[in-house]
C-alpha cells in the first residue's frame, strides 16, 4: 500500500498547515504519527523534497531538527 509520493507530500503539507496555527514546527516523528500508513523512510524522503522545493524549511532546536513552513511562527533567523 505504498502511497504515491505526490499524495504523500500533499498529506504532509495538509498536516503542517493544520498544525501551524498552534505550533509552527514539528518533528519528523510527528509527521509519521499523523500519516501512519506511509513508511518512515518515505515520509523522510518526501519531507526533505518539500524542503528542496521551498515549501518547508528546517529549524534547529540545538541538538535536533524540526520542520516548519517558511515564514510561519518563530523565524529561523533571530536578529536583534
Amino acid at each position: 500500500m505504498a502511497m504515491d509520493k505526490e499524495e504523500l507530500k500533499r498529506k504532509i503539507m495538509e498536516f503542517m498547515e493544520k498544525k501551524s496555527g498552534a505550533k509552527s514546527k514539528v518533528y519528523l516523528k510527528d509527521m509519521q504519527r499523523a500519516i501512519p500508513d506511509a513508511s518512515p523512510r518515505d515520509i523522510k524522503k518526501a519531507a526533505n523534497e518539500l524542503v528542496q522545493e521551498g515549501k518547508l524549511e528546517y529549524f534547529s532546536t540545538g541538538s535536533t531538527v524540526m520542520y516548519g513552513i517558511p515564514g510561519k511562527g518563530q523565524p529561523v533567523e533571530q536578529k536583534g
Partner: peptide, 11 residues
C-alpha cells in the same frame, strides 16, 4: 541560539 541548520536543502 538560532534556528539555522544548514545551507539550502541541507538539514
Amino acid at each position: 541560539h538560532g534556528g539555522i541548520v544548514g545551507v539550502f536543502g541541507y538539514g
